[in-house]
Amino acid sequence: MIIPHPLLGPRDAQEFVYLGDACLIDRPDGMAEDSADAFHDYVYMRDNPAGEHRELWYHEQGDRSWLVVTRDTVTHRILRAELASDIARQRGRGR
């Protein structure tokens, strides 16, 4: 597979390490009332779509960027690759 790195262009997937669903960005607040339930879902509940899937890849043999790669799990077609930090900010994460 070839991953179109947003900063470095097309890179072989062998340079990356795969983590999993990009929903891992949405870490719940550990101090909230319902944190036990929220963390249960965060750690253990995953969709397993046949089709478009947003997932986290780490360019370990490269610039160490975490990327959110949107990939079709049926065809392996990659639709997008974005910096995870940008996505995290879009989803309201900051400090």
């Binding site: 986290l56 780490y58 160490r64 960027s65 975490w66 995290a88 900010r89 994460r93 900051g94 400090r95």
Partner: peptide
Amino acid sequence: FRHMEFCRQCLWPDL
């Protein structure tokens, strides 16, 4: 190190 980079970039990008 990978985990720490994940936390830095994906959880708290503005630290």
